[in-house]
Design a protein around this nucleic acid. Structure first.
Length: 139
DNA sequence: GCCAACGTTGGC
DNA sequence: GCCAACGTTGGC
């Protein structure tokens, strides 16, 4: 079981909007970066990710679940290699975990979110996942 | 194949 | 609004 972090600017697509999609979820399209694409391709149905609001908020607001393995991104031009997955909202953080919180936690100093701040789909390790869940008030 | 120029992302 | 990081493009 791998864990992920999905960045979204809430002005473009927020956690609340994802929640409104319900169990059907939402296609996660528009990734145009090869590192992020490789991560999308590794995602398997049933795996989980943190939903992070970039720019506005800068905090992890909830947990989402991958509900469909990667498939060709319908918003890509023909012949382009980009892929998408579908995700749905699983549960909100009881307390959002901010970027400042993450930076202030020594155990999270190696998290890819901090190491590669521009990567829109970084991976999260098992131990990082547990720490952030705890910080967010979840078991 | 190198590297300068440029564009984009995202934190501050 | 600025700037650092970094990916991409294009000239050589």
């Amino acid at each position: 079981m791998a864990y992920w972090l999905l960045k979204s600017e809430p002005d473009a697509f927020s956690w609340d909007e994802l929640k409104k999609r319900g169990a059907k979820g939402e296609p996660w399209t528009g990734i145009r970066n090869h590192t992020a694409k490789l991560n999308l391709m590794k995602m398997k149905k049933g795996e989980r990710g943190f939903f992070y609001h970039s720019n506005v908020g800068k905090e992890i607001v909830g947990i989402c679940e991958i509900v469909r393995d990667s498939y060709p991104d319908p918003t890509a031009k023909t012949g382009e290699p980009w892929v998408a997955v579908d995700i749905k909202a699983l549960e909100p953080m009881l307390k959002p975990v901010t970027l400042a919180d993450i930076k202030a936690e020594p155990k999270l100093s190696a998290i890819q979110l901090l190491k590669q701040s521009r990567l829109s789909v970084p991976q999260v390790t098992d131990s990082e996942w547990k720490i952030v869940c705890k910080m967010g008030g979840l078991k």
